[in-house]
Design a protein around this nucleic acid. Structure first.
Lengths: 224, 224
DNA sequence: CGCGACGGAATGAACATTCATTCCCTGCAC
DNA sequence: GTGCAGGGAATGAATGTTCATTCCGTCGCG
């Protein structure tokens, strides 16, 4: 499994084809690609600014020139790096979705008992939510929006598929409740999202202690 | 407690002041209020159309004339009933938030054991989610958006406060984990939202059985 | 000097809101 | 009972604004 398969060509090292690439491999050839290295800075600044604004005001509530201003570039420059506003939001989505995925996959204890695997996943998500709260909020907010393209949706579907098969395997070992796997995913992911949302709203602080307590709660929700 | 205090003047029977009315009681006098009874139909059609469109495309993604068209009225007519697009979204929010609240409060088993109270709340939410999936999705999506006014936010805060004190009381009886009440709320509400979201996306069917299974999971997450 | 990156004014489409006009119900005169 | 006048409700084209995108002059680097 290769996490680079989740991001677009500009960010990914060219690699072998990936299982989870759900869309035809030919992404529309990006029109404007500045060739200098300095370009990377601007592209990045645009993505960072866009992330912040999309979280604060939503996709339709954010004006492209506003993104440009916060990124410290001219409005026209945006279109040297992205074909459209939609392309920006998809790039932001794919970048950070890949980030989460990488964290979860990294050092995954494949052969450990379920409780330990659960701990790893919970911690990985929590690390991400603490390190990049905006990105986490963005991914939640823009979940399944209609301006997300096929590739972005494919990533999401792939992640869920992976979760489903993990759960099915663990259930087979009798360590989880024998309920529909999608139900268990919904509860765990939902609980985690609820946690982060309350933190984002300032009603809760995501200390390691709180995260650990929530982890135990979530585990008790689904364990056999 | 009087649920009518949550909805605006046009929908509510005049009543005594309510505890959870968090904003100054003087709501800005509604400018245009058609006096005939036929007006109620149009106002309602507008709110229904707006709910659907806001869920499908978001607040900024929805054009007012679009709402008018779906409601079967002229664009100008909207402004006979609502002062602005923001007023529409707030009216939708307050109407349905009040709906949820009413369902939860109705026949609440004040003196029953915690598990039974939990069952009542879970079922009330589930009934609402099944009866009005769009409204539920709307409330989730537009949670804490910046176009919601003080009154709308006040309702939300009030609901959470109520949940907090309920949890604190139940913890005092030793029936819930002695963790921060906000944490327990986050987990239960989050789990429920996760459930409904997966259902809304078509990955899960909200049968009574599934709802009951999820309820038991959520309870085991927070019980002592 | 020449080429491409860059900024920001220019452009045309789309939007929220307004307003002059039409429609239709009601009550009254005959 | 019929016709008509008054007035609130409804309308949708018009308005001014904002937006995504394009265009073109400038500038820095080779």
């Amino acid at each position: 499994m290769n996490i680079h398969s989740f991001v677009d060509g500009d960010d990914a090292i060219p690699t072998r084809p990936a299982i989870l690439q759900m869309t035809p491999p030919a992404s529309p050839p990006r029109r404007p690609v500045p060739t200098t290295e300095r370009g990377a800075d601007k592209r990045d600044a645009i993505l960072v600014a866009a992330l912040e604004l999309f979280v604060e005001r939503g996709f339709h509530g954010t004006a492209v020139p506003e993104i440009a201003e916060r990124a410290g570039v001219g409005a026209g420059t945006i279109y040297r790096y992205f074909a459209s506003k939609e392309a920006i939001v998809n790039a932001v989505y794919q970048r950070h979705k890949a980030g989460v995925f990488a964290r979860v996959m990294k050092d995954f204890p494949v052969d450990a008992p379920a409780r330990q695997q659960f701990h790893h996943m919970w911690q990985a998500f929590a690390d991400f939510a603490r390190a990049e709260p905006r990105a986490f909020a963005f991914l939640e907010l823009h979940h399944h929006a209609d301006y997300l393209d096929a590739q972005s949706c494919g990533i999401e579907d792939g992640t869920v598929k992976m979760g489903l098969s993990f759960i099915a395997a663990t259930q087979a070992r009798g360590e989880l409740k024998p309920l529909p796997p999608m139900l268990l995913i919904a509860i765990v992911v939902g609980a985690f999202n609820g946690l982060v949302r309350k933190a984002y709203e300032g009603h809760l602080e995501l200390t390691p202690e709180v995260i650990a307590q929530a982890e135990q709660c979530a585990w008790e929700a689904i364990r056999a």
